[in-house]
Structures are given as C-alpha cells and as structure tokens.
Design a protein around this nucleic acid. Structure first.
Lengths: 342, 342
DNA sequence: GATTCAATTGCAAACGTTTGCGTAATTTTT
DNA sequence: AAAAATTACGCAAACGTTTGCAATTGAATC
C-alpha cells in the first residue's frame, strides 16, 4: 500500500523527468541506451510494478473481461471458465467473475459494477429470473453504450448479439434417438427448470425426436426438476409410480441422473435392461456413476474458448455480430448400452 | 467505449465546474438542493456511470480482490469461491479469479498482474510446483510491499501470515478412527499428490490414528493418486492385489472414492461389508455414489467466507496476522456404516 | 564562428474523479 | 449601513502513466 514505488519516485532518484523513466522502461529508442539500462536495472532491483490502473484510465482499456454466470457449482460452468482462461491468460487479460445465483437483482448490480470498472467486454449467461420475466433493460443499456456483450448458453435476443451456444436441441434429439434405437418404448424426460433456454431446447429436441418416430410426448412421462440429484429423487419416484412405467429416461443433466439412478436401484430395476438412462453435460464423474452414465457432451470448455476468441476478434475490430453454435456429442456408456437393437 | 459520458461532459451541459457535478452526484450538502436534484436526474437519465478506475487511482484502493487457485474443477474450490463472493459482494468487492493449473510460472505471472492491477488483497492457494520446490520469492515480494495475502488451504510459512485452513489432520484422524470403530483391521490409504500440505496432513492424521490404536502404517497399503477418479483405478487395483487385502480404505478425496468403488465392485467385493470406504470433501454427489459415500466435510464454503471476513477485518485496520482453523465434520453414510462395532 | 542537424531530455496535457481552499454572492447580525 | 456570517460554487492539485512537442546539448557542416 504505502510502499509502492511510482515512476515519479524513480525520476526523483535519477533527477530526471517521469517521462524519461517511462520511456526508458518501455525501451524507447529515443532514450540513451546506457541510461535506459541503468534505469531498467534499478527498477528491477526495487521491484517496480507498473500501475495498470493509470494505464486503463489513459487508454480506455482495462485488459479485464467481466464474466457473469448464474452458478459456479457445476462442471459446465467451471469448464467454461477454464476455457475462457485458457485463451485469455496468454492474451494478457484478467477475469472478473460474478456469480448471480440466478438472481436478476444481483445480475443487474454486477453488470453495473463491471461497467463502472470499465471492463473491456462481458461474457454473460443470463439468470433464470432475467429470463422468466424478460428483464433486459440492463442488458440493453450496456449494449447501447457499445460495451461488447457475449452471451453464453442463454441469450434473449434472436439477432444482433454475439453468442456462443451448444445445439441443445440436437443433443437432446441425439440422446432420445439413441434410446429409441436401444429399443426403449416409453421414454421419459426429466425436464430442467422452466424458463431457461437450455431446458426448453432439450425438451424440444426430445419432443421432436419422439415425433419423428411417430410417438407423442406423454405428460405423465415428463417431470420437472432442478439441476441437482436431490430434486431428481422425487421426480423419478413419480415416473416409476406411473401405471405404465418408462423404460428409458432422458434427463436434463448428469447430476439429475445420479439422483434418478438412486431411486431406480432402490426399486430394484436394472439399468439399462429395465430402464436405460442418458444424461447431459458429460461430467467427469459420469463414467463413475453406479452404472457408467451415457451422456451428451456439450463441449463446455469449448464454449469458453470460443467466447474468448470471439471477444478477441471484436477487440481486433471485427464489428459484426457472430453466432457460434457448437455440436453436441453423444457419449455412450453402460447406462444405455443394451446390445440389442430395435 | 466512445459514448461513455464523464463528469466533464455533464459539467459542460450545465455550464459549471466538474467539481460541482461530482459533489452533486455524491449528495454533498454544500451544493444547492435543487441543482443537486436536477443534476442527479439528468445523470440518471443519460445513464451516467461513475468511472471506478479514476477512483482507484485516487484512493489507492480498487475494491477488487485477487484470487489465485490451482484449479477450479472440484467442488472444494468452487465452494470457496461461492463463500468469498457471498461475503464480498455485499461489501462491494469484485473478484479477479486466476487459475494456475498447479503451475508455478502461471502463479508468478498472475501474482504480478494482480499487483499491477492494484488489487486490495490476494487470496491464494499455492500451486503444487510452488510447494514442491519452495519457490516463494514472488510471495515474499508481494508481502514486502505490504499487500495483504491470505493463504487458503496451502501455505508455506508457519508464522507471520494470514491463513484459513481446515484441520485436515484431525479430519483424517476422525475418518480413520471411524473405520477402526467399524471393525476394519487393515485400513489402506489412497494418498494425495506429494508435496501438497493437504495430502501430507491427511496422511499424518491417518498415521497418527493407526498409531493410537497400536497399529503401523504398512507401505503396501498406502498408494499415491491424483485428485481424480481415473487415477484411483490403478491404485485401488494395486491395493486389492495385495496378499492381505485391506478391509477399509480412507481416500484423500471423494472423486478418488468414485474410482475406487468402480474397481471394488468390479471385483465383486461388497461395500461396506468387505471393504469400508471413507472420502474427503463431502462433494454434492457423495450421497449419490454407487454406495452412498461417507466423507469428511471440510466446510469448503466456510473457508471462502472466513477468508473474506479476514480480509475485511484487515481493511478495517486489524494488522496482526490471523490464523483460522476450521473443524472438519465426519458425515457417515452407507459406504462405512457396518452396524457392528469392534 | 555561425548554422544546421541529430541525439537526448523535459514540459505539459490528458485520462476521470475527488477535495481543500479560495471567492464570490447573498443573508444575517450588530 | 457596515461588518460578519452563511451559502454556493470554481480553481487547481492529486493519483500514475504516456506522448506530442519544445528545448537543450553537443557535434558536425559550411
């Protein structure tokens, strides 16, 4: 705090102007080579550290990226952050990470603070509340002051924004089709929280696939859950309590599958023989579930990487909006591998 | 970028000095109540946002905390971040989160950048490399410029630093003792990566407990793993290949237990009857493991909360170093619950 | 010896905000 | 009516750095 040394301090030491020190430290050819070296060595010795804040003020550029996410407790989100960091660290950027807990109020506040901090751009995954009530004035305001905003996963505009998403519809379609090919006749769906694009898209993919094979969505085979195993317990019990039980379940994510497995095994059904199971996200523990879990990978880390690259390309002057859609990948493991085909 | 409005712009609009605008916006009583309101309304209308950067420059305080962690892919680390955020968001702070991937070089670089960015303090969990080779000049340098540094989990100094840790030794002791009370005769340990305090402390707790009960650590019952289920597979096979197999395993963390369970079940041993299992961290999926997993909770979120509070207390002028040690808690589930006592 | 040129270095403004102090203008007190 | 007090605002410096331009120095040219 008190003992940070500035360029002025060094200037006093050398009895010269701050500008000379600045140029010397930046290896400006205008400064005599010898004085340059002397100054650099001295600065090094006393551990001088350039004050980036003054630079930010001067250059209108903070070399910092704001990240707003609803949660940080799932593999998907941490992988996104890892992806962002993998690209932006070498580029000299720091990350300001803000977790909204799905709260719109917090999202607004964080957005304001990031703007006040003059981050160079914001990567955001909208909160559920923002979604539910289409509360997007804060986003519009940020966009209107031409702050680059990159949407990840969840976005509210169809056009005119930058975004990186995975094709959840397609992923859900693939998962459902796989269950059909494994001979499942009654495929249930553990539906994610309402209002979130990701949940909706996965349901639509499930629906579309059933339709393609001449089947209909049966209301009693679709049950809503949160993104946690706990919430899946009750929902799975509900499904298993139906007169005509499902023989396949496509769940909105892998954590939910862990909850579902617990219930299925308690009731002594066999996975995948009695009930086949496919999740979403391909979390690291998926392969180590009670029965190794089939899952749709949405390349979470790549979402972060692509968002970062999209940001960098904007910094380089590419101004038209880009929309990147990543391909999901179905990873088949024991929980759905029946070895008999329909 | 271009269209951000400053206090000077507003001053021009009102044909007055910037200082008047500043005071008006800060509700300074020196300014006439009416002009104050007028200016505030105008600022509000055009969406004026105070430039925090200039304030940071002025006040030598950035309202930002640097966080350096080796990884972000486990529950423990994300919970720490949640804890930090829970306390620091209401206090008006933002988090600069840096993930080192256990690399010393990256840790150095991030530390430098955070210093250059004049964060108000740094919460750090040292990288494995920093640990292995005791490379701590960068830390010493940061401390020497009286930047508050708070160590989480891993630290290198015994004294004279601020730190928040969990009593890993005690947690490991509790876990081992629990296995002994469940009647285990040969208790193995899946040892974490060498050089990391957490691994060492947990081993020592295991060792001390065995000693207390008149047993010795047997080399062939201690196998080293990484913090992942994959790495546990081979290690567990090694343990099960011993002439005298273990009938209890204490593992360095829960992910490792998932890997171990896979192997144990493949070999048709029963958990907990043949082999009882206890992990560490109490991750959210622990209760949903193939056999609900007993685990030692180290109150990860609380580590973040306490670190944040320690930081705030330092900001309030408390200058002597504080060392907080949290109590671990043993959560007993099926994987170790044998219902028969020795 | 005066002039030009190149090589170094200093000056000052700029980024956006706050704040102590000075100064008008207005009101109150004597 | 003069003096004192109050109210409301402006000036300028400060935070740390960069950068265009001016200024100084010394050497080289005519």
């Amino acid at each position: 705090m008190g003992n940070t040394v500035s360029i002025k301090d060094i200037a006093r030491k050398f009895k010269c102007a701050p500008s000379t020190i600045s140029r010397a430290l930046n290896d400006h050819p205008m400064i005599n080579i010898d004085t340059r070296k002397t100054i650099q060595e001295y600065a090094n010795k006393i551990g001088y550290q350039k004050n980036t804040i003054s630079l930010s003020l001067l250059n209108h550029c903070s070399k910092t990226l704001g990240v707003i996410i609803p949660s940080i407790s799932h593999y998907h989100e941490t992988a996104i952050i890892e992806g962002l960091e993998a690209i932006l660290q070498p580029a000299g950027y720091l990350l300001n990470i803000c977790v909204t807990n799905e709260s719109h109020a917090l999202e607004r506040e964080y957005l304001d603070r990031l703007v006040a901090n003059r981050v160079d751009a914001i990567c955001i995954s909208l909160s559920q509340e923002t979604f539910d009530y289409s509360l997007n004035e804060h986003i519009d305001l940020a966009i209107s002051r031409s702050l680059p905003i990159i949407f990840m996963d969840r976005f509210y505009h169809a056009l005119d924004v930058d975004r990186v998403i995975t094709d959840d519809f397609k992923g859900a379609f693939m998962a459902t089709e796989h269950l059909i090919q494994m001979g499942c006749q009654r495929i249930a769906h553990l539906h994610g929280p309402r209002g979130i694009t990701v949940s909706q898209q996965r349901f639509k993919g499930y629906e579309a696939c059933l339709k393609k094979y001449g089947r209909n969505v049966e209301d009693e085979l679709v049950k809503q859950v949160m993104f946690s195993p706990e919430s899946a317990v009750e929902a799975t019990k509900f499904l298993l309590d139906q007169k005509a039980k499902p023989d396949g379940i496509f769940a909105v994510n892998d954590e939910v599958c862990f909850g579902a497995m617990k219930v299925i095994q308690e009731r002594n059904y066999k996975i995948p023989e009695d009930i086949a199971l496919v999740g979403f996200d391909d979390i690291p523990l998926a392969a180590f579930a009670p029965i190794a879990l089939s899952s749709v990978s949405r390349q979470s880390k790549k979402i972060g990487e692509q968002s970062a690259q999209l940001f960098l390309s904007k910094m380089n002057g590419i101004s038209d909006h880009q929309q990147v859609t990543l391909e999901p990948e179905l990873i088949i493991r024991e929980s759905s591998q029946r070895n008999h085909y329909s």
